[in-house]
Simulated scan of single mutants.
Amino acid sequence: MSGRRYAIYDVFTDKALAGNPLAIVFDCDGLDQAGMQAIAREFNFSETVFVEPARNPAHNAAIRIFTPHYEMPFAGHPTVGTAVALANDIGLSHDTATLLVLEEKIGDVRCAVTSDGAGPGFAEFDLPQLSEPLDAELDEAAIAAALGLGPHQIGFENHRPSLWSAGVPFVAVPVAGLDVAAAIRFDGPAWAEMAPKRDNGAVACAYLYCRDTIGHDNAFHARMFVPGPPVYEDPATGSAAAAFSGAIVAFDQPQDGVHTHWIEQGIEMGRASRIRLEIDVANGKTRSARIGGHAVRVAEGTLAV
């Protein structure tokens, strides 16, 4: 079938040509996995979403998320971008949230999309899986070397490197400040040699963070690197922020209640992004958590294949 509609959104930003770009291909009923993978490779974004009819008629859509090389069970910026895109098709209400349920590999993901009537949509979704710590022996000296840093530049306050997953595992590495974050020179092969592996054999990615920020209303500054192949930096990573929620609760030990954290990412790449992370804490543990951000449509068209 030819003529499948697609759109490109910049996600976790309220301005075009910033944030994390996402391709969304609609009307994918009948498109097989090999075809999806080939189209994702053609777009060559960090992720491409394929929208299929929902299995449950009460839900809005089933989505599949592909990198140029493999399928993902869950990812944050594809969820936010697709929720905004589908809500735009429905017609965003300026007074109430548009509620959607997206069927993903990880499970059903509930989303709420709002708009101020003039600017981009804002989507927030409940984490389908809360962040959990994973057992791993993390060598701080080896981590520092793979980042082009010295061991003394790893960690701040009581924060130390740790491995977390809310569906996708990440090594959360605290660094001493903005100057250290800017100085990172990521060595993909060195990271791949020492970092924990996922169930599918892929290496857990590196999520670097510090409490110093460039935006005064942000709580954390972050960078995320994929060890490859190919090696690349991601400008905004919702699944990493979801995993990071576990580290926040473990190290900061927040009081019971709702805690909102804005995370800036992508600044070193010239793709500034902002991710909103909300964590509900009860009895010192995460009861629920949400990821939110804006998304802006920058292009649309049809595929000729």
Results as ranks from 00 to 15, higher is better:
Leu134Gln: 14
Leu147Val: 00
Ala34Ser: 04
Thr79Tyr: 07
Ala145Ser: 13
Phe74Gly: 00
Glu104Trp: 15
Thr48Asn: 09
Pro53Phe: 09
Pro57Lys: 02
Glu140Gly: 01
Ala146Trp: 09
Gln33Ser: 07
Ala23Val: 12
Thr82Tyr: 07
Thr79Met: 10
Leu22Asn: 12
Ala118Trp: 05
Asp89Thr: 14
Ala85Arg: 11
Thr67Asp: 02
Ala18Gly: 02
Asn88Lys: 07
Pro68Leu: 13
Ala142Asp: 14
Phe66Arg: 04
Val113Cys: 10
Leu31Ile: 12
Arg110Lys: 12
Phe45Tyr: 13
Phe66Val: 01
Ala87Glu: 11
Glu71Asn: 00
Glu71Gly: 00
Asp89Gln: 14
Asn44Gln: 10
Ala136Thr: 14
Phe12Tyr: 07
Arg110Thr: 05
Leu92Met: 15
Pro68Asn: 03
Asp135Arg: 02
Thr67Pro: 03
Val51Gln: 03
Glu140Ser: 10
Phe26Met: 11
Ala61Tyr: 09
Glu103Pro: 01
Leu92Ile: 12
Asp89Phe: 01
His77Ile: 05
Met36Val: 08
Ile63Phe: 15
Pro21Ser: 12
Pro73Met: 08
Asn56Leu: 14
Glu124Cys: 08
Ala123Cys: 11
Leu134Ile: 09
Glu42Arg: 14
Leu17Gly: 02
Ala87Asp: 08
Ala136Ser: 14
Thr96Tyr: 11
Glu71Phe: 06
Ala144Glu: 15
Val109His: 06
Asp108Thr: 02
Ile39Arg: 01
Cys111Val: 11
Leu99Pro: 06
His69Cys: 03
Leu86Met: 10
Leu134Cys: 08
Cys111Ile: 02
Asp108Val: 03
Ile39Val: 11
His94Ser: 10
Thr96Val: 06
Glu42Leu: 14
Lys15Leu: 10
Val84Cys: 13
Asn56Pro: 04
Ile39Thr: 07
Cys111His: 03
Gly30Ala: 06
Val101Glu: 03
Phe122His: 14
Ala40Cys: 08
Ser115Ala: 11
Glu47Ile: 12
